[in-house]
Structure formats: C-alpha cells, structure tokens
C-alpha cells in the first residue's frame, strides 16, 4: 500500500467510523478500466454542461469521444500518476469510499446532474487536499480532451490551420 492508498483508506475509515459504518473491507484494484469508464461517464455530462452540442445524438458522440480521449491520454502520464488516478476511479466506484469521499450512498450515475456538479464543487472547496486534487485533475483531463476535438471549436469561432497538409 503506498502513501496515497493509505491516505484514501484512512480517509474512508475515518468517515466510515464517524457515520457508524463499521466494516471496512479491503478491495482489490481489479476492473479499474471499468471504474474509469463509469466515473467519467457520470461526471462528463456535468462538467461539460453548457458546452455539449444541442443535438442528442451529437451529444452522445461528444461524450463517448471525450471519455475515450481521456482514457487514451492517461497512458502518457507517469506510472505513479496513472496509479493515483486509477485508485481515485476505483474508490469512487466503491460503496465505502463513495460514502467517505462524497457523503453519498447513491452511485454517481444515479445522482441528478446538478448534484454531480455540487459534488465536484464540494471537492473543489473541501479541506482534504486529495479531493481538491481530484477536482482539478479530472477537470483538466476532461476539458483537455473535449477542447482537443475540432468539432468543439465551432462554438469558439476557432479553426486550426494546416500549414503542411
């Protein structure tokens, strides 16, 4: 267990104890890709509110492409940072951690969009630096992937030139 896992789990335990949730079970990091997909799919529509295309089909395409671009980008990060992010995704998918980190019993995807936003903002304003890091890290990954795609530049009035087509 590295330092970050330790902090995450201590945080989970502390909050679990204070809410009467007594049993803490060690959970493995299997299925982390799946966790990343679930968490991103839950957060993307909230983070991108106001930026997504109006048409429902285009919206779905935007969301899935942004999620895939985030997942692809992760491979370029140093191993230590990749592990931290995988742990974050994993923990957000685990009952106990979800309670500890978000104060919510519901699955992320079960929350209405406005509450997913509130959740993100509560991380931003949290006293725990880990949650503040999660907020800025996820936000940056998502906006980076979304605005990297040319179809989202229309709203910006921007076109990338091609000097060497």
């Amino acid at each position: 267990m590295n330092r970050r896992q330790f902090i995450f789990r201590s945080l989970a335990l502390t909050l679990a104890a204070s809410t009467g949730y007594a049993v803490y079970q060690h959970q493995s990091l299997q299925g982390s890709d799946n966790a990343a997909v679930l968490v991103l799919d839950a957060l993307l529509p909230a983070v991108l509110m106001g930026a997504l295309p109006a048409d429902t089909q285009d919206q779905q395409l935007s969301l899935s492409q942004t999620r895939n671009d985030v997942l692809q980008f992760l491979a370029y990060l140093p191993q230590s940072q990749q592990q931290q992010l995988q742990q974050l995704f994993q923990l957000l998918q685990q009952d106990l951690a979800r309670l500890a980190l978000t104060g919510q019993w519901l699955q992320l995807a079960e929350l209405p969009l406005s509450q997913r936003l509130d959740l993100l903002l509560s991380w931003r304003d949290s006293y725990f630096s880990l949650l503040q890091q999660a907020y800025s890290g996820l936000r940056e990954l998502i906006y980076g992937a979304f605005y990297g795609q040319p179809q989202h530049w229309l709203a910006l009035g921007y076109m990338a030139p091609e000097f060497n087509p």
Binding site: A46, V47, L48, M49, G50, A51, L117, L120, L121, R124, R139, Y143, Y147, A155, L156, G157, Y158
Partner: peptide, 13 residues
C-alpha cells in the same frame, strides 16, 4: 466549471 466555463470559452476570441 460547467456553464461558467462554457460561457468563457464561447468568448475565446
């Protein structure tokens, strides 16, 4: 975040 970020991006130029 969300709308506030999108509004700013729409004034990109």
């Amino acid at each position: 975040l969300a709308q506030s970020h999108a509004r700013l991006m729409q004034q990109f130029n």
